[in-house]
Amino acid sequence: MDQATLANAANVSRNTVVSFEKGQRTPNPNNLTAIRTALETAGVIFVDENGEGAGVRLRKRVE
């Protein structure tokens, strides 16, 4: 997913996504929730800390 698509799906500005990816700032809580929800809707699963660090993976496709 590119930045523009994520920004559109999360209903935030592309600059918000760019600044977050560059580590220049942390989005406000509402924007962060919107970005996470957009990613989860697209199939991203956020994995909590399990001794090897937090991470992400893609949901399996059901065919």
Rank of each mutant, 00 (worst) to 15 (best):
T37L: 09
A38L: 00
V47S: 07
L58E: 03
N28G: 14
I45T: 13
N50C: 06
N11K: 11
V62A: 15
E21C: 08
E21H: 07
R25I: 05
P27K: 05
M1P: 07
A54T: 13
P29D: 10
G53V: 02
I45W: 01
V18M: 05
S19V: 03
F20T: 07
P29A: 14
G43S: 08
R25K: 12
P29Y: 13
V56L: 04
N28L: 02
T41E: 11
L58D: 01
G55M: 07
N8R: 12
T26Y: 10
E52K: 13
A42T: 07
E49W: 09
T5L: 06
R36G: 08
V17A: 03
N50R: 11
R25C: 03
G53N: 03
E52V: 05
I45N: 12
L39S: 00
G23R: 03
G23Q: 01
A54Y: 06
E52M: 07
T37H: 09
A7S: 05
I35R: 05
L6C: 06
G51N: 08
P27V: 03
T37D: 14
L6V: 08
V18N: 11
K60G: 11
G55R: 11
G23N: 01
K60A: 15
L39P: 04
A34F: 07
T5E: 11
